[in-house]
Write a protein that binds this DNA or RNA. Structure first.
Lengths: 157, 157
DNA sequence: GAAAAAAGTGAAACCGGGTTTCACTACCTC
DNA sequence: GAGGTAGTGAAACCCGGTTTCACTTTTTTC
C-alpha cells in the first residue's frame, strides 16, 4: 500500500506530482512525451528509457509504471484480447478501440451513462466501481487493406 | 475472426453441432453442464474432465475449447484485469460483471445500442466487429463483508 | 555532517496461463 | 486393410509480468 502522505498529496494536488526519483521521473516523462492518445506497452517504455539511460533495468521501469499508476499520473489499460497492458498519461475516462489486425489502440471519447451503470448495478445487486468499454475491429488502414476492392486491385481477382 | 461460414452455421443452426471427437464432446458437455451463467476457467474444465477421464491431457482440453470456440458453441471471455479467460456456453451477447475482490463473474444482460456503436465507429473511421463491456466492483457478498457497518460489527469499532 | 533508516536499483530467478511440438494412436475412406 | 487425416498426452516452450536479492543512493534524525 501507498504511504498515506502520498495518497493525500495525490488527492489534494493531482497535477503537482510529488518529487519523483530520477528514474521514475524519466519514465513519467517518456509516457507523457509519447503524447496524449499514444499507448505504450511496457517493453516500449523500457526501450525508450534505455536510450536515455542504457543501464536502467527492466524492473525499474516496471516499478516506476506501477508507482505512477498508483499516484494516478499514468493509466494502465488492459484490453480484452491484448496480451499486454498499455500505458498512457492519465486523463478523462474514456473507451478504447483496438484493431484486431495490427494491434493499434485508439482512445474513444465515450463513457456509458452513469444512469445506466447505476441501474445495472442495482439490478444485479452489485457495487460498481469501474466500467470498461472497448471496441474491437479494424482500423481504417487495415480495413482498406482487407476490403474486397483492395484485394481485387492487388490480386486481380 | 471466425470464418464467415461458421458464423452462418452458428446463426442458422446453433443446436446442430457437427460430430465432435469423443474428448471434444466431453469438454462441451462439461461447459454446457456447468449451466448458463456459469463461468469456467480452463483449469477448472481440465479438472472436471479428469474426473470423467483421468488420462486426458491438458492440451486436449485446450484444443477442445479452442475448437468449440471456433465452432461458435462456446464463448471465450477475456475480462480486463482477469489473468485467465473464462468459458461459457454460447448464447446471446451480453456484458459481464467481475468482482475485483473474489473474482466471481456474472452475466449482465445488456449490450450497448447498435446506433451508438455505429456512430462511434463512423466518428473514428474504424470498422467495429465487437463491443465488450465489463463492469468491475464488488459482488453483494464482498460488498457486505467490506462495508463500514460490517467492519464495525466485527471489530467493535 | 555522521549514523541510521528508508527508498530505489539491476540482474536474475520465478510464475502462471497459455501455446506449440513431438511421437504416437484412433478413426475414416476407399 | 492400406493410406491419409484427425486426435492425443507429455513435455518443452513462450511471454509478460512479478518477486527476490544484494547493493547503492537518498533522506532523516540527532
Amino acid at each position: 500500500m501507498l504511504p498515506l502522505v502520498l495518497q493525500w498529496r495525490k488527492m489534494i494536488a493531482p497535477a503537482a506530482e510529488p518529487r519523483l526519483a530520477r528514474n521514475y521521473r524519466l519514465i513519467y516523462d517518456i509516457v507523457r512525451g509519447a503524447g496524449l492518445g499514444r499507448h505504450l506497452v511496457m517493453a516500449e517504455v523500457y526501450e525508450y528509457a534505455r536510450r536515455e539511460q542504457p543501464r536502467i533495468g527492466f524492473s525499474t521501469v516496471y516499478r516506476a509504471l506501477a508507482r505512477l499508476h498508483e499516484l494516478g499520473l499514468v493509466s494502465e489499460i488492459r484490453l480484452p484480447g491484448a496480451d499486454s497492458a498499455y500505458y498512457e498519461v492519465a486523463g478523462k475516462p474514456h473507451a478504447h478501440f483496438r484493431c484486431e489486425r495490427c494491434g493499434a489502440v485508439a482512445d474513444v471519447d465515450y463513457v456509458p451513462p452513469q444512469r445506466l451503470v447505476r441501474e445495472l448495478g442495482r439490478r444485479h445487486g452489485v457495487e460498481i466501481d469501474d466500467v470498461l468499454l472497448s471496441l474491437h475491429g479494424r482500423c481504417a488502414t487495415c480495413a482498406a487493406a482487407e476490403s474486397p476492392a483492395a484485394r481485387g486491385a492487388l490480386a486481380g481477382t
